[in-house]
Design a protein around this nucleic acid. Structure first.
Lengths: 202, 202, 202, 202
DNA sequence: CATGAATGAGTTTTCATTCAT
DNA sequence: AATGAATGAAAACTCATTCAT
């Protein structure tokens, strides 16, 4: 359950509509892709089209709200795992939770459409920073190789689910296999030198 | 340089237009995504809209032609590498060439739209089979771990480029870093048991 | 004057547009035939193209609304004539009114395009049943020959107008002449046996 | 079998193509209505689209050729019946043959599209004149009522088939029933005075 | 002479967004 | 605040007709 916090507090019914709308939009985007129509989203939420625009001035704004909420949720998970006693296990757990969420509904394609939104950028940077900490701890604990950064891990979050997704009808947890392979690549054992240094985040 | 072979040989001018069209379509799809319009493609190719439909009866058919041509090209590369003396290096070279192509223009998203096309399916299966052979040889040579299959590698082809692509302004060859990490995950050294068996290709 | 009854009651302005649209569509269809374009209809009604589709999701739906409204109107006329004291005159009057309507604007060709619509079918069957009653009464009164059915008359409704229409520039009431001839063929006096039994209505 | 005589004599193969084209066009128009496409007609005739335009400069010209050929054929039939010993039976036979042709393929809708063509007008006038003679003889023999003209009959030619055509799935010879009724209306027995005088043919 | 290729104008329909109630 | 109505711009696709080979 994701709780989104709009800028100003809204009247109870308006707040409820906002949540209905976000939920309906997510479902519609998952089913129909980026071209899901505002009309269908409104119908699914049980409100009129114009009401969508009262809450989100633009389709892009609606998309940004969805993407942002997912970044927030993941950040919360990562923060929780920062307390974990086993930093290596914590990192793997984070990637597992993230992949599991993506498997249930891959909304990655929405990121492209919300690239410019400043709120999204802020939330993404926040997630990125938290992952940095998670990886830092794992590296210090010797659970991942020394030449790996938080940015590397951040960029690889979606890889297992996407790899599995190229199979015509993949088993629902096939991504675990590819997370296994990729995580082995992150381990210190048997690591070969990488051809390029780690990128800096923006 | 990709050479596409239309079903029947065309008059010289028509063949030229076909190539112009495919090139224009690729560029347009790269820039605008799946929703690139036929009108824009036609304009870019310097022909009339109806000419696009003369060559490709449907937008889907045009997409299928593009996707198919890329599968063919990759298959050719993979076939050539089957002769290589060093099977491990050959596999890495294949993944490198594939990623390099994707980096220049990622048309992965077109695959979804051409999923039903039988020609595309045939070409994809051909590529898949060739990758199978490539991996088989690498496994026998001890260059990749024993529990890895051709299907695994096939599914991971795009991962390095996609990972790099999540960075706001990635260096053009950043994918090499992630190919390094993932390839390390495919190596026998330091391999941990995988949580799921390899999938069978449909 | 035809009053159309939309499924649900609309806002005043929408109702007005609906009527404008139906009127414009009728005129356009009369002038240009079945291929009258939605664009022209919209222009004539003074609304945007998309407004047409808001009222009638499909060109077929628009056609069905027109055809249906005409069936309804004729049914109302026929019902009124069922009360008439002279059943023979009532039948002739019905055919006269029907032909007069067709003469002003023959939309028969729209029937083909709305053949599948269930509402139209229902309204047509209703008209047919009412004509059945009208003919029944006329037959019992000896005003039409015994071997004539309501279906026969129903099928012959358009004949007078169509016959007159084959003349290059027919007088506006020339159809009355052909209604006279055909009605004479329906009369008991001088009737010859018919070569085929009456058809059953589906 | 209808033989059409083009203005100038053509080379044997061209003449053959012309006939193929006319036949293909008729079939296509019967199946698809006025919107049958030149492309489909060309395909059905086994020639290229441009060849259609070599024979008929315009779609309208092609339609006119078809309509004209049918008028010619009917005129030939009517001329033959002018020799008949029984003028009343001859007229009925003419209407029967005409209706039978229409029933097999109703191309009436093509007339509208060829209204302006002078050749068609000439052929139609020729048919009209012949029908005039046919009716004249029948009237003199007392087989039809005195107030009926050739023009009347000409206008009523299509009525039986069209009436039958309003039935959802009419028996193939149902038109005979309506020809019976209408012809009874043309007979002297039981004739009522007509409300309008006969029209003059343009 | 016949053809395959090309085209411009047109078709129905959809959609994000604005407006009036 | 919420809605149903309206809209302009665009999309994929079709067709009669012309042009180059």
């Amino acid at each position: 359950m994701i709780v989104t916090t709009p800028a100003r507090s809204l009247r109870a019914d308006a707040a409820r509509n906002r949540e209905l709308l976000l939920a309906a939009a997510e479902e519609e985007f998952v089913e129909r892709g980026l071209d899901a129509s505002i009309a269908d989203i409104a119908r699914r939420a049980g409100v009129a089209k114009a009401t969508v625009f009262r809450h989100f001035a633009t389709k892009e704004e609606l998309i940004a709200a969805i993407v942002g909420s997912h970044f927030s949720a993941l950040t919360a998970v990562a923060r929780g795992l920062l307390e974990s006693a086993d930093p290596g296990a914590a990192l793997l757990e984070f990637l597992t939770v993230a992949a599991d969420g993506l498997q249930q509904q891959d909304l990655t394609f929405l990121q492209t459409a919300s690239e410019g939104d400043s709120t999204v950028i802020a939330l993404r940077d926040e997630l990125h920073a938290t992952v940095d900490s998670l990886v830092e701890r794992a590296r210090e604990a010797g659970a991942v190789r020394a030449d790996i950064t938080g940015t590397d891990v951040f960029l690889l979050i979606c890889a297992p689910v996407h790899a599995a997704g190229f199979l015509p009808r993949p088993a629902p947890d096939l991504w675990r296999r590819y997370l296994g392979i990729i995580f082995d690549g992150l381990r210190p054992e048997g690591a070969n030198p990488l051809p390029l240094p780690a990128p800096s985040w923006s």
